[in-house]
Write a protein that binds this DNA or RNA. Sequence first.
DNA 1: TTGAAAGCGCTAACAA
DNA 2: TTGTTAGCGCTTTCAA
Lengths: 344, 344
Amino acid sequence: MAKARTATITDVARLAGVSRAAVSKVIRDAYGVSPAMRERVNGAIEQLGYRPHVAARAMRGASYTLGIELPHNISNPFFAKVLDGAMDALEGTPYQLILAPVGTGSDHGARALEALVDRQVDGIVAISPLVLPSWLERLAARTPVVMLGRHDHSVAYDTVTGDDTTGAHLVMEHIAGLGHRRIAHLTRNEETTRPSTGNPHAVRLEEYLAYMREAGLAERIRVARTGPSQEAARRDTLALLREGRPTAVFAGNDELALGAMHALSDLGISPAETSVAGYDNVEIAGHPAISLTSVDQDGVLMGRQAVRLLLERIEGRTEVTHFRVEPSLRIRSSTRPAPPDPAT
Amino acid sequence: MAKARTATITDVARLAGVSRAAVSKVIRDAYGVSPAMRERVNGAIEQLGYRPHVAARAMRGASYTLGIELPHNISNPFFAKVLDGAMDALEGTPYQLILAPVGTGSDHGARALEALVDRQVDGIVAISPLVLPSWLERLAARTPVVMLGRHDHSVAYDTVTGDDTTGAHLVMEHIAGLGHRRIAHLTRNEETTRPSTGNPHAVRLEEYLAYMREAGLAERIRVARTGPSQEAARRDTLALLREGRPTAVFAGNDELALGAMHALSDLGISPAETSVAGYDNVEIAGHPAISLTSVDQDGVLMGRQAVRLLLERIEGRTEVTHFRVEPSLRIRSSTRPAPPDPAT
DNA sequence: TTGAAAGCGCTAACAA
DNA sequence: TTGTTAGCGCTTTCAA
């Protein structure tokens, strides 16, 4: 009896009566193998149930692994959509996805990215991390990187973004068109929305501010800050409502919008009194019981496209690509005409 | 100028004036290194910004990578919770998570698991795949495996499950207690619910059937089949309602329950006419606009526990462990007293 | 406690 | 077109 080790390339070579290099070429579909040899080798592979050892391959060539850096809160269904799209694009390829959640620390995701580099990933999708562009560019010099969601147009890495300015504009136009003037914006903390980050929330906030000013509502500007979770949004909306009553709340994303709706419900405030709009158009927003007006951006497409760009890079593309997803507004019953303004 | 290669263990050894083996011992916290040497080596590591090359380590020792096999639909927030918990348990460890989505094929997830084995993962969390127990046991002989959600108690792998019989019983008891007799069960397809799979949906279905029989409602049994998505559940609930009107629907999970509620809303049927209950207690179930009665099972805990069991195994534990999460019913306004039954 | 040496399974020059 | 050879960076005996 032979040892029950798992078959290696050497075993295959021996069985097929060829060199290891020949086997290597066959499994990589490399140039310069005769059909006869290919057939013999494939026969041996099948017979032995041989599967190439990824770690060994990674030492010389590719690891066939893509890394995705993402915020810790997958519970936000938008990220789930992105992840879904990314996995989708990988189906049928030999590549696999490795996850690097950004911790709660203040490293802005640098640690998570480093963990991916340690694993010799062949490419990285980073979902709007807060690391410095310079840091990212250094990384991108060694490994293909696609930034998802962030608006800086580096020449070092590809990007996949939604047009958040347009999206936010659509929301504001819609809400203002319904007669609202006391429109509050519920968004993430200062660090996340610092303009230099190019973070989607930063861009949406900018557009909110710009729109309010242009509409002559500068003194009505009201920005409430909150955490990433629905529950945080609920609490902070409660606080917001205690300090004065906006007639509409534009939330930075649907997760926050759902929290805001929850808060309104807690206080017995109906949608007719206070409108809410979100961003991302997650599935539940379309549920009749929620019916949340939101900006649709195709998260699945974004994730898929990010991976595609990465694969293209790995195949040899060198010029930078910026892929932009068009947003579109889904108007639902959470936004209603403004009630008569007692202050006017 | 030296080449700008990234530092290897040899570089560290040279700078510290020790052998490579010594460096290896330090980075692995292995037995038999003097404090003085440790310090010297750590100094050199820091100075060079050395990071061990994971692929190289994987060739001899551990890959520091855990694999998680999951259904393709991360969009189900329950899976997101599990993933969240798993990532959580990994924080602060050198381990990373690699994703293996189960394709749409009929291999029952075997391909996905194989991809993980190719990557020499140190352990695998499998979320209730449909692969044969024998297949899994063979796998578990080589690599620690934790099965999440499946009810077979193998001696080869650990399991983390909810008590689905109890959970389903709680739902049925509650609904029946409200006076309902025409209770339908909305669940996944036959393949998924085949009893031998030990799948949670299979167990919930069993309990539904058992309860109905024991309550003398055998002839009222009504099982509707559907896909995993909300939209599929909506369509199939519409069909269900067209063929007779149950007064309550017990859905196999919240995703299906939301689809059922959507269908009821489409037809203008109020919760007072037809009750709905789900399973998983996803976050949105607690939202006042949804207010879905559901069985809470702590997905985050389950994911975290699965990874913990894996790490324990890797550290050397040999006896099998079965971790069970207790379910508890969250009663909300989606379940109401049964309307008077015209058929009675 | 430390180091020397062998080799994990694969790929990439290069030679035949 | 095929094979030979030399490692990739690390861990692991085993000897000093």
